[in-house]
Design a protein around this nucleic acid. Sequence first.
DNA 1: CCCTGATTCGC
DNA 2: GCGAATCAGG
Length: 177
Amino acid sequence: MNWNDERVELLKKLWSEGLSASQIAASLGGVSRNAVIGKVHRLKLSSRGRATAAPARQKKAPKAAVSAGSVSKSAGRMSSQTRSMPASIGATALQVQFDTEAVAQTYIRPVQNNVVVPISRRLRLVELTERTCKWPNGDPLSEDFSFCGNESAETGPYCKYHAKLAFQPAAERRRNR
DNA sequence: CCCTGATTCGC
DNA sequence: GCGAATCAGG
């Protein structure tokens, strides 16, 4: 993916609107959040408001080049992250409305069948990750549409609560119907 | 652990 | 110029 004017423009727009690098990366598609951040820096349009304070970045430990040595991986805390964003979302023709105000809001639904419905994070499609609940709220065609976005688990695409709704036992489903 | 942005540096 | 790896902080 290369940075044509269109993509750069969108990048600038989203960045100025306060979206996070990962969100922008997801929106653009085909790039990592690092790529976005790197681009942002090169464009010299860094700080916007205050995301993460920029105290005073200091040098980092030089990375020892491994050529013929027998340096082994440290047994330390280098966490292994198998990160991977959606990578391919059909956002090409999708005109997403960026209502920054409404994005991070949460709301509470009273009850449903005597059970409290968890607070939804109301995430947009591009904000879903491998471990956010993908239970849809509302009409996908509506501006109001959102995803639950809570936990998720390695056991499935939904949070604990929605998993129960989704994978309801046949017997119980029949009864509730 | 999840996430954020910031920086470095090999390509 | 690009962006993965890394760092630092919440």
